[in-house]
């Protein structure tokens, strides 16, 4: 198994090299070969370690194997003089403090409950067993929460975001606790 793992590791490294060459030469051919090699290396890991271990390791390894190429591209920057920055002027702005606190409270506990309600209501519609519904729900929920938090952060019309999310949560909550389900 050690030899096979080593060969799979070599495969992952070669794949990273191929992707790097495609980037370096702006070559579509190298890109295709590199990414195919990357997929192939994941397959090698599956052959060596089984589907669960192999997939996990195969998908995580590029984070390491690309650093040889990144080191080749390392570019030293010229030292510059020290920049003296003026002192930051802190001002007490109660409205800003309240606003930011509100944002944080909405994103943290607020979106936690919104996402939990929506997620449970949605997964319990799925035509799968209850353990599968729970697994999908609890593992997809952080992704949904993350997407909602991202959307809230970039939205210039936060009131609309809150209205839509809360509305969806109310509908979900009514279905869950309003006796609508069997």
């Amino acid at each position: 198994m050690i030899l096979e793992s080593f060969l799979a590791l070599v495969g992952s490294t070669v794949a990273a090299g191929g992707i790097y060459l495609s980037w370096r030469n702006s070559s579509a051919v190298y890109a295709w070969l590199g990414w195919l090699a990357a997929a192939g290396s994941v397959y090698c890991w599956y052959l060596v370690l089984g589907v669960e271990y192999g997939l996990t390791i195969g998908l995580c390894l590029p984070a390491l194997t690309v650093w040889a190429a990144i080191a080749v591209e390392a570019n030293p920057q010229r030292q510059s003089t020290a920049r003296i920055k003026p002192a930051h002027q802190w001002r007490l702005a109660p409205r800003q403090i309240a606003l930011q606190t509100g944002h944080i409270l909405y994103v943290l506990p607020g979106q936690l409950f919104i996402c939990a309600l929506i997620m449970i209501a949605v997964v319990y519609q799925l035509p799968v067993s209850e353990p599968k519904q729970m697994a999908i729900g609890v593992l997809v929920m952080p992704v949904l929460w993350g997407l909602l938090a991202y959307w809230y952060g970039l939205s210039s019309r936060k009131w609309l975001h809150i209205a839509i999310s809360s509305g969806a949560a109310v509908v979900a909550g009514l279905w869950l606790f309003g006796g609508a389900h069997g």
Binding site: W23, E73, Q77, R78
Partner: peptide, 17 residues
């Protein structure tokens, strides 16, 4: 994201690093 995929600038004032 693709253009910078393998770029690494180090040193200087530390910001780009």
């Amino acid at each position: 994201i693709i253009k910078d995929a393998f770029k690494f600038r180090y040193g200087g004032d530390g910001l780009k690093e």
